[in-house]
């Protein structure tokens, strides 16, 4: 039996006069990986950013409908946006570590919250780096600059940094599109390991990637959620013509 962790209800979003998302109803289940696929510009990133309110700072953004995290509407008035963002981690398309040490990158979120002791932070940094499969590679140089890491390591550092907040949900926006095949494979395996402890929503332009790691896949087209199914089902018997066309590479 699957249990919903984070989901939308009749979600619409506008940037100014342009409606980007149309009546989206998407659910991500606890301890499962949900992929969002679709051609470039169809609104995948925008949809993903609704789950941690990262569209809020964009001028002229308007949103109707609801986004629930464990049954609580995260857009309800008086919601603590910062707490939402701490419990819904996000990893971006291009690795974006801070130009700080490896240690301080992972400690950042905890230091911001200001309620952890130094030793708690130290333990949490180690735990998070281990969870992101980076510990062995960096344990001897925690105080070196994060910029000295390879692209794949930087991306795993960004995952570790998000995990340090102990999020319930991890949002990944095309996390491997800037990486080589080996680093990509490593991050895909990592996702499969992480889903035991965190719910994962991943945007990917790479259909095969969704096939390899996602339990559920959503196909987004022109801001509409065309189809949302178990991955095998969506890949083998797509219900919608547009899904079929996208999967067979007719567009996008």
């Amino acid at each position: 039996m699957v249990e919903r962790q984070i989901w939308t209800s009749n979600l619409n979003l506008w940037f100014g006069k342009n409606q980007i998302l149309h009546n989206i109803n998407l659910e991500a289940y606890k301890n499962h990986i949900t992929a969002i696929i679709g051609p470039s510009g169809c609104g995948k990133s925008t949809l993903l950013r609704c789950f941690n309110r990262m569209n809020d700072p964009i001028p002229f953004m308007e949103l109707t409908g609801k986004v629930y995290l464990d049954g609580k509407d995260i857009y309800a008035p008086k919601t603590d946006v910062y707490a939402v963002r701490a419990s819904v981690g996000m990893v971006f398309q291009k690795p974006n570590p801070f130009p700080k040490s490896i240690y301080n990158n992972v400690a950042y979120g905890l230091q911001i919250q200001g309620k952890y002791s130094k030793s708690e932070i130290k333990d949490r940094v180690e735990e998070s780096l281990k969870a992101a499969w980076l510990w062995d590679e960096v344990k001897d140089r925690l105080h070196h600059s994060a910029m000295s890491l390879s692209g794949g390591q930087q991306q795993r550092l960004c995952i570790a940094r998000a995990l340090a907040n102990k999020p319930k949900v991890l949002l990944l926006d095309e996390p491997t599109s800037a990486l080589d095949p080996q680093s990509t494979a490593k991050i895909e395996e990592l996702c499969l390991a992480l889903k035991n402890s965190v719910t994962i929503l991943i945007v990917t332009h790479n259909v095969a990637q969704a096939g390899r790691i996602a339990d559920y896949t959503a196909f987004l087209y022109l801001g509409e959620l065309v189809e949302f199914e178990k991955t095998e089902q969506l890949f083998t018997v797509p219900k919608d013509k547009r899904t079929e066309a996208y999967l067979t590479g007719v567009f996008g």
Binding site: P57, A86, F92, P99, Q113
Partner: peptide, 12 residues
């Protein structure tokens, strides 16, 4: 992207 990284970790 540095600002986004910080905001996404829950920073004001």
């Amino acid at each position: 992207s540095i600002r986004e990284a910080s905001l996404a970790l829950g920073a004001t």
